[in-house]
Write a protein that binds this DNA or RNA. Structure first.
Length: 430
RNA sequence: GUCCCCAUCGUCUAGCCUGGUCUAGGACAAGAGCUUUUCAAGCUCUCGACACCGGUUCAAAUCCGGUUGGGGACACCA
């Protein structure tokens, strides 16, 4: 049974890099019918925070990476202690006293060559000569990262350690510990790093946006996962959009490439639009309702859900992020719309009183008020006036929506309704 | 400084393992056009890469060596 783990430290939010590591672990488990274990590396009590833990757990669930088991290192200190004592007893570690602090347990490093057979990179050789003796238990009694990591991976029977490239130099240190403790070695796979656009590691300043923020901004988890999957792996066959369920069927560590990838969010935007277009509008409504309520655009108990879904449908294909809807469709919810000054300048300098009046009358005369009849009435009217449709379409759009961009005019009028269309047009009749 | 990793369009990548089918394919971005009711989408087209040097070979993006460049690690952080 394949067992993999993702081991974040709650000293920061989950960001793109961590999410991608989690993804590759999770998908490998799925691909091989294995288990995905989540381990919280919260040994540093001073830096670990509950809010980060919550954010990490929320984000992993949001992305769809459900775990089979969950461990907290802070609850396992006695286990680390036990193994440290074993090493002490066997003479593989020694105690070191520091003034003002307690005793630390230090691992004795024996000079030798250490070979790592990495699933992605092949064989890598290190010389332990360059590695200093390693602290196992700090003088405050807490374990160090490398020690706790090895004990936990072995104890929880992790078969494949899949992690970022930045851990590659920890690997020889950990292998020495596995051997000293008499544990079986897992397989190692070191993922290429994700670099910021400026080069270098992802940091708060450079692209390390919290995953939960992508949720807040209106990205779809499927889109983010698909984008992440393409960073270092390819389904082949010139495929870009690939559903996770399909990807799990063809995923293999062997196909992960060695090169670090630069984070370029343009492609994520494109990907998000791809998923937004085909997403069930009912689901998008669920996502949008809280934000719309908060904006005061709708009221929770007086919600016309069917209407909202209809509106989502006419915007769906043009959204980059779901939240674009809130700005672009505001005129459907606001009593008083704001007219973009540039749009007014461009389309409403002329007096359209006669045309607007005429259009109102035509609409009121309609027996059946739907997208097709509105359009027919409008087209007949401009024909009679002897003008091009767009001469009138743009000014009407600006008056009704306040914007120069948006959905087709006739469906927009249909959903705005006769009454509101009339009111907004009348404001511009002198 | 020491150790380690990496190297195909601006970006993500296919191809590399198993040299010839590669005058290197796709996607994003950019530019042009079509459509049109604006924007978005869609469609068509354009721009654009095997880091460099040497070796092996009839033949190298593909194998080998070096150079250069980029990145990572060297904590009683994780």
């Amino acid at each position: 049974m394949i067992r993999v783990r993702f081991a974040p430290s709650p000293t920061g939010n989950l960001h793109i890099g961590g999410a991608r590591t989690a993804l590759f672990n999770w998908i490998y488990a799925k691909a091989k019918g294995g288990e995905f274990i989540l381990r919280i590396e919260d040994t540093d009590a001073a830096r670990s925070q509950k809010e980060y833990l919550d954010e990490i757990l929320f984000s992993l669930k949001w992305l769809g990476f459900e775990w089979d088991e969950l461990y907290y290192q802070s609850q396992r200190f006695d286990i680390y202690r036990k193994y440290a004592e074993q090493l002490l007893k066997e003479g593989k570690a020694y105690l070191e006293k520091t003034e003002g602090r307690g005793e630390a347990v230090i691992f004795k490093v024996t000079p030798r060559k250490i070979k790592v057979n990495d699933l992605i990179r092949g064989e890598i050789e290190f010389d332990a000569e360059a590695i200093k003796d390693q602290v196992l238990i700090k003088s405050d009694g807490t374990p160090t990262y490398n020690f706790a990591c090895v004990v936990d991976d072995a104890q929880t029977q992790i078969t494949h350690v899949i992690r970022g490239d930045d851990h590659i130099s920890n690997t020889p240190k950990q292998i020495m510990l596995y051997e000293a403790l008499g544990f079986n070695l897992p397989c190692f796979a070191h993922l290429p790093l994700i670099l910021s656009k400026e080069g270098g590691r992802l940091s708060k300043r450079k692209g390390a946006t919290a995953i939960s923020d992508y949720h807040t901004m209106g990205y779809l988890p499927q889109a983010l996962v698909n984008y992440l999957l393409l960073l270092g792996w390819s389904p082949g066959g010139n495929r870009e959009v690939i559903e996770i369920n399909e990807a799990t069927k063809i995923f293999d560590i062997k196909n992960i490439n060695k090169t670090a990838a630069v984070l370029d969010l343009d492609k994520l935007d494109w990907m998000n639009n791809q998923y937004l277009k085909k997403e069930d509008p009912e689901k998008l409504a669920d996502e949008l309702i809280p934000a719309l309520v908060e904006k005061g655009y709708i009221e929770k108990d007086k919600l016309d859900r069917g209407y909202l879904v209809s509106l989502i449908k006419i915007f769906q294909g043009r959204l980059t992020v779901l939240n674009d809807f809130i700005d672009w469709a505001d005129f459907f919810f606001l009593k008083e719309i704001k007219i973009d000054p540039a749009a007014e300048e461009k389309f409403l300098k002329r007096d359209f009183s006669r045309e607007f009046r005429m259009f109102i009358n035509r609409m009121e005369a309609l027996d059946k008020f739907d997208v097709a009849t509105i359009e027919t009435a409008f087209r007949e009217m401009v024909k009679e006036l002897g003008i091009e449709a767009k001469v009138l379409i743009h000014p009407i759009r600006v008056v009704l929506t306040g914007k120069t961009i948006g959905p087709g005019l006739f469906e927009l009028i249909y959903y705005l309704g006769r009454q509101r269309t009339k009111e907004r047009l009348e404001k511009w009749i002198k």
